[in-house]
Design a protein around this nucleic acid. Structure first.
Lengths: 259, 259
DNA sequence: CAGTGGTCTAGACCACTCA
DNA sequence: GAGTGGTCTAGACCACTGT
């Protein structure tokens, strides 16, 4: 057994020293992606610290997103994630007329195997935020499509679309399959010309529920994306709210230099 | 001393039960922002668990961004953060001609007290990424402006701008103060008409160094923003790389529906 | 100076994995 | 069945805070 010593003169705490050592091994490639780290007991032994301290060192790396743990099996260097690019041309009308919904277009352009799981289709009372954007009274009934999208067999996004009831009446937006081009195409067929989008992104750590639903590893943040879809006269025809796995997305925007 | 019991039949672990109780007190407002949580010993006493378990419960809340700790003083409910809006019109030419750099314009529009701290102005060898974007050989010397921006007395962003040496020669981009309109205005004066921007956002947890530099509390993610500034003929005149505090920013974009 | 958070010790038990 | 991660106990010492 190789022995290494904690340096008590080092201003870094023992756990931090161990974490730094392991991090170096990982970033240098000495511990390759998928590679297994020493067990808690091995590490505690090697540095002559308690197992608790060894565990705290490795929890640090987990919180940085460098390693994953599998109970009963070990801790492993995380493999770099496949990223889904979320680009600013995803709302292009030509994509819609080609029969693609925004995210579908994105995924297929990147050659990513993709599917959508519809979690809920229902009339629900509007919460504060939904009510404000859809210009209805809080508590008024609105239509919600809740779904989870998957890419390459992994969940990537929890996406909820809200609509005023009169807007989606008699459209396939109330059904599982909205048909080619997605909800936006149906809205345009009904006469709502879509002219503008506004979106906001915030970032934060996930709740426990979100962690489970998105199969997030420890230390992976999420992006909260809000989108408001405007029709003529600034009518809001859709309010979209989604939670996206932070390690599986990159947001990409392109602008002309505006005058 | 109020006593509460852990329920051993509950599938949640003791630490999780305690965290859930405290979370309820916080979100219900019973424990208001700025309010102080029970100390480790008090909490351990109240639930009849070891201090370690009480600490783990509160670490959970810290990692969710709900509480802050101050050694020697206590743990406190975090106050909601002031957000800096990062909007898609920040690169507008009219702002530049009004003498505003992109982020400066953003801050001032929101009435936020703002300043920039220049950390480094130097010739440095280009790393892989910088070289690729600026179309130079890796290792070739490029100009870097490293700075930290502050809003309302708090650091918000670590921002590095990279330029080819010939592009910035004889401009104030090599000095502390770039003058009105910022670096982009100087580039245009030198004849580089700025026509397009491309930016990418990724989200992740901060490194230790970034945590310190941005005064991040536990459990606060960061956004990594890359920006490439194009001049005519798709010449790249600037590569910008920044790390932004996740709890202090909201990204906002507006698009017309492209054809 | 009493109390606090931060970190540590030296174990323990459980549910799980893998050969 | 040996080894593993996850979580826990019942303390301990230190540097720091606020009165």
């Amino acid at each position: 057994m190789r022995r290494v010593s904690i340096n008590p003169a080092d201003p870094r705490s023992p756990a931090e020293q161990i974490a730094d050592d392991l991090r170096t091994e990982i970033t240098s490639g000495e511990l390759p992606p998928g590679g297994r780290l020493p067990s808690e007991r091995q590490l505690a032994d090697r540095y002559r610290v308690s197992t608790t301290t060894a565990v705290r060192a490795m929890e640090r790396l987990r919180d940085e997103g460098l390693i994953d743990s599998k109970a009963g099996a070990g801790r492993f260097v995380r493999r770099p994630r496949q990223l889904v690019r979320v680009g600013s041309d995803r709302y292009a009308r030509w994509r819609r007329s080609a029969g693609k919904a925004p995210f579908q277009a994105e995924m297929e352009a990147a050659g990513v195997e993709w599917r959508q799981e519809v979690l809920e289709l229902a009339e629900v009372p509007a919460d504060e935020e939904v009510a404000r954007w859809l210009a209805v009274e809080p508590g008024a009934l609105v239509w919600v499509r809740r779904r989870r999208t998957w890419a390459e067999g992994e969940p990537t996004q929890l996406a909820d679309s809200y609509y005023r009831l009169d807007v989606v009446a008699d459209t396939t937006i109330m059904q599982e399959d909205t048909g080619p081009g997605g909800g936006h195409a149906r809205l345009e067929e009904k006469g709502y010309r879509i002219i503008r989008f506004r979106e906001e992104i915030r970032i934060r750590m996930p709740s426990n529920q979100e962690s489970r639903d998105l199969h997030l590893a420890g230390g992976v943040p999420v992006a909260e994306l809000y989108r408001v879809t405007y029709s003529t006269n600034d009518t809001v025809v859709e309010f979209f709210r989604s939670v996206m796995a932070g390690d599986r997305h990159v947001f990409s925007y392109e602008f002309e230099a505006p005058e």
